[in-house]
Amino acid sequence: MPNKLKQIWASGGAAINGWLAIPNGFSAEVLAQCGWDSVTVDLQHGVQDYLSMVTCFQAIQVHPVMPMVRLPWNEPGIIGKVLDAGAYGVICPMVNTAEQARAFVAAALYPPAGTRSNGPIRAGIYGVTTGYQKTANVETLRIPMIETGEAVSNLEAILDVEGVDAVYIGPSDLGFSLGLVPVLDREEKQILDIYEKVVRETAKRGLAAGVHCGTAAYAKRAIGMGFKLVTIGSDSVFIGAGSRQAIAEVRG
């Protein structure tokens, strides 16, 4: 199927992304019906593994939501496996240099553009050449994370790597790497200046900038800044926040 986020970006819009930390098909199914443009299974900091990711994909595939994955790390084996399982977008953490970005992109692309092995066991038909192999390089997104001072210093070189479609800011790690408290919705001028640079440099190249937000209000603000992909919280965050609010209201 055509990549929904690419369509949104081509029309000048911004995509709203959900986040799955809970390894459960039912919670994924519930989230998929809420109106997100895409939903990302978090293999890095979520309590997800490969099989729970597949279960989440199976739960959401009947809904008009694009499945994505945040990888645990920049490693070719897992990059190929999440794509084989049906991911339409791959977010890669801790990409700090152009060399690391090139390695990520190569692992996510079929030859001759890259080195991805053929075996799309869910995305296509295993061992058989189908339409998937013909379109996968175009329809899947490769999104390095910008979350350290080193990555910011190398931003232009990372963005110039052929095959990078967008970058995704991890505000907690970005702040942490600069000696700040690791939180999501940042207000420091130093960080906001970095956001402005990322938005400007991606737009200059026809790419998209993404950012993880803690609240809907900040996500709306981020879209106003020029971000084209905003994530709001996660399934586990929503459960905790909703529960605390309900309990506080009753006890108050």
Rank of each mutant, 00 (worst) to 15 (best):
T129M: 14
N137F: 13
P112T: 13
R186T: 07
G163W: 12
T115S: 15
Y132H: 15
T202Y: 01
Y132R: 00
V65C: 12
T130L: 05
L180S: 03
G114C: 14
G119A: 14
T130N: 07
Q133W: 10
L83A: 03
A203Y: 01
T140M: 09
N137M: 11
P120N: 06
G163E: 08
I91N: 05
S177P: 04
L184W: 01
A203V: 03
K197V: 14
T97A: 09
V152R: 02
A157I: 10
G119P: 03
P171H: 09
M94E: 09
E156R: 14
I146K: 00
V138G: 04
R142Q: 10
E201P: 01
P76A: 14
I125K: 04
E162K: 14
G119K: 07
V128W: 07
G206Q: 12
K134L: 14
K197T: 15
D84A: 01
I125L: 14
M66P: 04
V152N: 02
V181S: 14
T129E: 14
A209G: 15
A108C: 13
V128P: 02
K134N: 14
I91Y: 06
V183E: 10
V65Q: 06
E150P: 00
E139H: 12
L174E: 05
V105S: 05
V82S: 04
L184A: 14
P120L: 03
Q190P: 03
Q133A: 05
I121P: 02
L141M: 15
D185R: 10
G86K: 09
T115N: 13
F104L: 13
V152M: 13
A166K: 08
E196A: 15
Y110I: 08
Y132Q: 01
I91E: 04
A151I: 13
V167M: 05
G114K: 14
I143C: 07
T202S: 03
E196N: 13
D173L: 01
G127P: 08
G170I: 11
C92M: 13
A108G: 03
A98W: 08
A209F: 03
I143Q: 02
T97N: 08
L184E: 01
Q100D: 14
Y168N: 03
P120Q: 05
Y132G: 00
T135C: 06
W73Q: 10
K81D: 05
G77S: 13
R200P: 01
P72C: 06
G163T: 10
K134F: 08
D165F: 10
L141T: 07
G114W: 14
D193P: 02
I191L: 09
K197F: 06
I121K: 02
V164R: 11
G86F: 13
V161C: 07
V167H: 02
P112C: 11
I191Y: 02
F176V: 01
I143P: 05
V198G: 03
I194R: 02
N137P: 06
V82T: 06
I79C: 07
Y195R: 09
N154S: 09
A107D: 10
I143E: 02
T115H: 11
W73Y: 08
E196D: 15
I169F: 11
G89W: 10
S172E: 07
A157K: 15
G170K: 08
T202C: 15
G80K: 15
V199R: 01
G206N: 10
A157C: 04
N137D: 11
A98D: 11
V90S: 04
E156T: 15
I169R: 01
K197A: 12
